[in-house]
Design a protein around this nucleic acid. Structure first.
Length: 575
RNA sequence: GGUCCCGUGGUGCAGUUUGGAGUGCACGCCGGCCUGUCAAGCCGGAGGUCGCGGGUUCAAAUCCCGUCGGGACCGCCA
């Protein structure tokens, strides 16, 4: 039916009789007996010269039989890869007609996203999504090859599993055979991959679909894909190396460059310098600790456990309304306030400068390296709150576009084991409860001091790319005694632990190898490699921010018969 | 749970601040002309519940309240 793809024809094909199939992208009529058709398939466009095209319309599906010829002198189109040639002496068969399309299939027009999603099959015809889906496919292929090369075995794990109350909200599936009971869809294959380790698989991986019922964002969908992996008899360093190999393969499959070794940064340093556990290191505006400068200040707002500043070079001309806007944002992010200071020729211009001593102002300029023309922004609070607010402010002020600054991968290591002490007095795990404490901090497990517990580091690590958390992993606890100790600290009784994770704990009684793993989001990686700031652009059929699918109408109601069969009754909406 | 932005012929926008006739631009669509265009060109034409509901007003796309849809973000996402 077809001899060539549209986008493949070149001068080397001159003289060949070809059959090309595709969609009419554009039609240019020049009277009754000359017209040009741009024929489009997934490879690109080819111009066909036809004897009249009045019956043809945009997006008609046609098969064109003709001869490839060099275009007449002066009529080549340098914008098109196929622009040196055209298909002439054409016979056109209409294989399928088309109504006028609801939006132009043209990159140059930004169309309402609901409309694009409602007619996703049309949106997919555009080069942007065609390219993105193919980038995604080559990333998947490169990851599979890299994992296979490293001795990993691809294993599929179940989608219908038991709900565990940890982590994100589960999507649940009612059971017909056990009315009133439910499966959960996996948030990740976490427990199964650890069982694979107990089962002596040694190295497991999977491109796994994961589902979490949490609010959607530009970088979050209900459903997403992870490269999920786990290995036995390895250290954290081994896992980082293996993931680095996979990432390198994915990057070089899309770009023609190897990303090189991925630098490491401790969690503490990331928070201190960037105010985030997923720092975007493509730009400066780093946080500067100035707590010491105000150690004996008279200014109440700065009598806080942590005072930090951002110096915005050349920012002194920031307008008052913009500063007010930044202050509003800082407050919405949880700050008690935001102090701004314009560094001017004759000193510091700030609403609070009269509360500060000369020594403090001098110390501040020294600590931040601020010079005339700069803007200083300060927040004072608990250390975590200060870092958090200034970290968000930093992104607001300087974050580069998705295609700027290259690909800056970063390992964030030495995460804390616990992120806070909960209301019940038990520490709250920062990762999951199977995370191995850092070897140097194991002795703190026996401490009863909250500060000791919060100081404990874990063998957990995140991979970050340009400020996006790509994924996380950890060395797991394989020793039942340590696991019991952790559950005890978390306030999880052995009965409760047995109820929640009994099958895993049982498995660990029969010889669990030391093991560690990782998982990273393929949607996010592909989006950044494709230069997209939204993962919906690299997903064939994504959902809107409110979790709907304008194409299929999901989610929708069930009819009474289905509900009966499942033993379900729908309550009226709460008011 | 919260903050902010958007919604105007098929598409993308302007018009909303300061109320005065559905006014404008570009693309697309339909018809005609046109033998080297390429986002073809020229001429003509059709096409509107200004998201929806209520309110204020002599008068609402415009002001107010509510609601629906979309987007960005905070919370949330072990």
């Amino acid at each position: 039916m077809r001899s060539d793809y549209c986008g493949d024809l070149r001068t080397a094909d001159e003289g060949r009789q070809v059959q090309v199939c595709g969609w009419v992208a554009r039609r240019r009529e020049h009277g009754e007996h000359l017209a040009f058709i741009d024929l489009r398939d997934h490879t690109g466009l080819i111009q066909c010269v036809v004897d009249g095209a009045h019956e043809l319309r945009s997006e008609f599906v046609v098969r064109v039989t003709g001869t490839v010829r060099r275009r007449p002198d002066g009529t080549a189109n340098s914008e098109l890869p196929t622009g040196e040639v055209e298909v002439g002496d054409c016979t056109v068969e209409v294989l399928s007609g088309s109504d006028p399309v609801p939006f132009p299939i043209d990159e140059r027009v930004e169309v309402d996203e609901t409309l694009r999603l409602r007619h996703r099959y049309l949106d997919l015809r555009a080069a942007r999504l065609q390219g993105n889906l193919r980038i995604r496919a080559s990333v998947n292929a490169a990851l599979r090859a890299a994992m296979t090369d490293q001795g990993f075995v691809e294993i599929e794990t179940p989608l219908l599993i038991a709900s565990t109350p940890e982590g994100a909200r589960d999507f649940v599936v009612p059971s017909r055979l056990s009315p009133g009971e439910f499966y959960a869809l996996p948030q990740s294959p976490q427990l199964f991959k650890q069982l694979c380790m107990v089962g002596s698989v040694d190295r497991y991986y999977q491109i796994a679909r994961c589902l979490r019922d949490e609010d959607l964002r530009a970088d979050r969908q209900f459903e997403f894909s992870q490269l999920d992996l786990e290995a036995s008899f390895v250290t954290q360093a081994d896992i980082l190396e293996m993931v680095g190999v996979a990432i390198g393969a994915a990057v070089s499959a899309v770009r023609n460059v190897e990303p090189g070794p991925i630098p490491h940064m401790t969690w503490r340093e990331a928070m201190d310098r960037f105010g985030s556990d997923k720092p975007d290191v493509r730009f400066g505006l780093e946080l500067v600790d100035v707590t010491a400068v105000f150690s004996s200040t008279e200014f109440n707002a700065f009598r806080a456990p942590s005072v930090k500043a951002i110096c915005v070079p050349g920012g002194a001309d920031t307008t008052r309304s913009r500063l007010d806007d930044l202050t509003d944002r800082a407050k919405r992010w949880g700050a008690k306030g935001l102090v701004w200071m314009r560094v001017e020729e004759d000193g510091i211009n700030s609403p609070v400068s009269k509360f500060l001593s000369a020594e403090e102002l001098t110390g501040l300029r020294e600590a931040t390296g601020a010079s005339t023309g700069d803007l200083l922004l300060l927040v004072a609070d608990e250390w975590r709150a200060t870092c958090h607010v200034l970290g968000l402010l930093r992104l607001e002020l300087g974050r580069p576009g998705v295609n700027e600054g290259g690909l800056q991968f970063l390992w964030v290591i030495d995460f804390p084991l616990f992120e806070a002490i909960g209301d019940d007095g038990s520490p709250v795990p920062a990762h999951h409860p199977f995370t191995m404490p850092h070897a140097d901090d194991l002795h703190l497990l026996d401490s009863t001091e909250p500060t000791d517990l919060l100081a404990m580091r874990s063998q957990a690590y995140d991979l970050v790319l340009n400020g996006w958390e790509l994924g996380s992993g950890s060395v797991r606890i394989h020793d039942p005694a340590v696991q019991r100790r952790i559950f005890g600290l978390l306030g999880i009784s052995s009965d409760e632990a047995q109820k929640r994770f009994g099958f895993l704990l049982d498995a660990f009684r029969f010889g669990a190898p030391p093991h560690a793993g990782f998982a990273f989001g393929i949607d996010r990686l592909v989006a950044l490699l494709a230069g997209e700031e939204n993962i919906r652009e690299v997903i064939a059929f994504p959902k809107t921010q409110s979790g709907g699918d304008p194409l299929t109408g999901a989610p929708g109601a069930l009819d009474a018969g289905q509900l009966d069969e499942l033993g379900l009754r729908v309550l009226p909406p709460a008011t």
